[in-house]
Design a binder for these strands. Structure first.
Length: 467
RNA sequence: GGCGACGUGGCCAAGUGGAAAGGCAAGGGUCUGCAAAACCCUGAUCACGGGUUCAAAUCCCGUCGUCGCCUCCA
């Protein structure tokens, strides 16, 4: 079996065949940094992190570029409202997003380019497009001439005629065609601007991504990612610009993640139904969000509500349950249970890989991990020894942590200091129980739960863990 | 109005032609002083209506519903 990947361009799953052996060139559209990012942005970032981790697991070197759009109408408008410099505003949100990426355990991209750092490249691209009649300058603006590219619309499956018929776009007298889009935009006084052959101005939204691709990855790339909301016009226009200039197919695979749905609608700033990443991380383990993404198809809309969040948290607990140590007693495990665990390990790895090879079917892959969890827990109940159990636990951690990016062992930095005190209380409770002081010992247990500590009594004594 | 996606048990969902994965929740059981955790057991014919096929959740047509895009958007 070989890796398959769904390509929006062809609307089907295709075998992944990269431009260069064992290397994947992947570009993902990042956020426009004018406000706090929400969990929908996080979903997108997580999706491509998971793709990347799996490809690396399979031996590819992934060159991963994610951009920040740091100059744009929205940035300028918001900065004016706040009375701050637009570039400072962007900088602030880039820093914040970078910290979220880290908190979400997303592997750092190879490069994080910004629109404002690509101005010379953008200008030379626009000049090239004008030279070849794909673009035209008017009064300090430069527009791309959509009629000049006969396959314009191939990604989104639209025809120019249809688009114009139902177009809800402003009529701009300067444009030859209402669908023409801006490559370079003249700036008003006080706005961020750069000198150009067409006067002071700034780049249009679409051209920056084309420029960053060209600069950091080259004329052709393997995977271009982003949300489904970017298919049109953003990615359509990127294709038009880039291919007009290079005369080569741009991205081999166009990959789009579904939108996070919140109370029936796409979560977006314009709808106003936002949960920011910051708010989410305040209340939940970062892995909760990753678990939500993993439990669904990356291409479909993802439901986001309190119940689903709680389910994801339970899912994490379940995975973690398999990492508890063995508790062998006098009756040793049978050969049968040892064999059964070994068989489960083989089945798990195989099933996991098969699912992931099928267009990154993470929900299917996760199903196989849960089967392994059950196998491990069964083996523990069957008194298997720790070294046999560990082999299966290592496999679970390899797949869940290294490949899917979950963190099953929690970092207990601050709370580690509390451990000796909790141990003390557990010992105190043990003595109470020995004297059958059930009421007091139960009270102690209940109060520890309120502090976030779960006690579990077993025949070998009491263990505790953070909730 | 145009383009596209989707509709699987209470919830989240995998599966896209040959006996309905997995998780959460629920009920029953084992264990336990009681809990918790773990383990075992229990439940769906796949929106609806036609059609193709030996065989359909899976293909085709229609209906209803939901969502995305067509303007900024991950």
């Amino acid at each position: 079996m070989a890796q398959t990947i769904y390509n929006t361009l062809t609307r089907q799953k295709e075998p992944l065949e990269t431009l260069y052996p064992d290397i994947v060139l992947m570009y993902v559209c990042g956020p426009t940094v004018y406000d706090k990012a929400h969990v929908g942005h996080a979903m997108s970032t997580l999706v491509y992190d998971i793709l990347r981790r799996y490809l690396e697991y399979r031996g590819y070197e992934v060159k991963h570029v994610m951009n920040y759009t740091d100059v744009d109408d929205k940035v300028i408008i918001r900065a004016n409202e706040l009375g701050v410099d637009p570039l400072d505003l962007a900088e602030e949100h880039i820093k914040e997003y970078a910290s979220h990426i880290k908190a979400l355990n997303v592997l750092p991209a190879t490069v994080y380019p910004r629109a404002t750092q690509e101005i010379p490249k953008i200008i030379s691209m626009v000049e090239g497009l004008i030279d070849r009649d794909y673009a035209y300058p008017v009064d300090g603006d430069v527009f791309y001439r959509v009629a000049s590219k006969d396959d314009y619309g191939k990604l989104s499956g639209r025809k120019l005629d249809d688009m114009q018929a139902g177009a809800r776009i402003d009529v701009n007298e300067l444009k030859e065609n209402p669908m023409d889009f801006v490559l370079w935009k003249s700036s008003k006084p006080g706005e961020p601007s750069w000198d150009s052959p067409w006067g002071l101005g700034r780049p249009g939204w679409h051209i920056e991504c084309s420029a960053m691709n060209l600069h950091h990855l080259g004329e052709q790339i393997d995977i271009h990612g982003g949300g489904t909301d970017l298919i049109f016009p953003h990615h359509e226009n990127e294709i038009a610009q880039t291919e007009s200039l290079t005369r080569k197919p741009f991205a081999r695979y166009w990959v789009h993640n579904g939108m996070l749905q919140f109370s029936g609608d796409k979560m977006s700033k314009s709808v106003g139904n936002i949960v920011t990443i910051e708010e989410f991380l305040d209340q939940h383990d970062a892995d909760t969000l990753r678990m939500m993404v993993l439990n669904a198809s990356y291409r479909s809309p993802l439901t986001f509500n309190d119940e689903v969040v709680a389910q994801a948290e339970s899912n994490l607990d379940r995975l973690r349950s398999a990492l508890r140590p063995a508790s062998p007693d006098e009756s040793p495990a049978t050969d049968e249970s040892l064999e059964s665990l070994k068989a489960q390990m083989v089945k798990t790895r195989q099933g996991f890989v098969e699912a992931m090879e099928d267009d990154f079917n993470t929900a299917g892959a996760l199903g196989h991990l849960f089967d392994l969890v059950r196998g491990i827990n069964q083996a523990r109940d069957a008194n298997i020894d720790q070294s046999s159990l560990s082999q299966a636990q290592v496999l679970l951690r390899e797949l869940a942590e290294d490949v899917l990016g979950l963190r099953l062992e929690r970092e207990e930095t601050e709370s580690a200091k509390a451990a000796p005190f909790i141990d003390l209380l557990v010992e105190l409770r043990r003595q109470l129980r020995e004297q059958k002081e059930w009421e007091l010992s139960d009270q102690l247990r209940d109060q520890l739960v309120e502090l976030g500590v779960l006690l579990e009594d077993s025949k070998d004594g009491t263990t505790w863990r953070w909730k």
